[in-house]
Simulated assay, not measured.
Amino acid sequence: MRRLLILSCLAVLTACGGIRDDLNAAPEPLGTFRLGHNIAVVNEPVQGPFSRTVEDAAWQAAVTTAVNDRLGVERFEGAAFFHVGVAVEGYVLAQPGIPLVYSPKSVLIFSVNFFEDATQEKLNDEAIQLTVFEPCCTVPFLGSGFTRSAEEQMEGLAFNAARAIERTMRENGSWFGADDEVLPQDDTILEGNVLEDNPDLIAPAEIAPAEGT
């Protein structure tokens, strides 16, 4: 069992490195997009079950930083300004569970809107609501409540939220003068509010591997 957990940790960390390193590569341009206002609103979001508690200001700082790191002028130097507004609506920062039996997952639920500076028009008809899980860096059968601090969980979720926002922008590239892209499914990013739509995804019962496997 110990050997299995060590191998699981190594596999997860290797896979995670590929996702977390993507900010080091120059992105494909997104039409004329250049980040204008980067606004994150956090006003007493719903705290899901099995969650650690953090201050609203900490979420605001984490999300603002992650969006700027991914969409800021260091990466996108288009000719027109667009504004991105994020509202944090709910979260779970997993507490330690019971190893091999019950490992709560961390999630962030938020909505995002896009605005064109020149016209002051909102580009999406309705707010786009998304749920993100931590980006693949959870050791199987343990969960991040055992392996990561609340600050590390928040950073990972904010990182993945910014990824989800960029994916949404690429899928709707025509908003920014680019082509709409078809992207492969990412199981760490879901549409809607998982706390309302499928809360069992947050705290599934884990089944321990059979002895000797």
Rank of each mutant, 00 (worst) to 15 (best):
A80H: 10
L4V: 07
T213K: 15
Y102G: 12
E28N: 07
R3Y: 09
T168N: 12
L142R: 06
A40P: 03
P135V: 10
E166V: 06
Y102Q: 11
N172P: 09
I6M: 11
V101S: 13
E126T: 12
I165A: 06
N38D: 01
E171K: 15
T138K: 08
N113Q: 13
S149Q: 11
I19T: 02
Q47V: 15
I6N: 13
V67L: 12
P135Y: 05
L183W: 14
A80E: 05
S51Y: 09
D125S: 15
P199I: 05
R167M: 11
S8P: 08
G17N: 09
Y91M: 04
N38S: 06
F114N: 00
A210K: 14
E155G: 03
F176L: 01
V67G: 08
S149P: 07
S111N: 06
P49Q: 13
A203L: 07
G173D: 06
L130S: 03
G78M: 05
V46M: 08
F50Q: 03
P135H: 04
D117P: 00
F146L: 08
P99K: 15
P184K: 02
P104E: 01
E55V: 00
S51L: 04
G36V: 07
Q120A: 06
C9Q: 13
A208F: 15
L183Q: 14
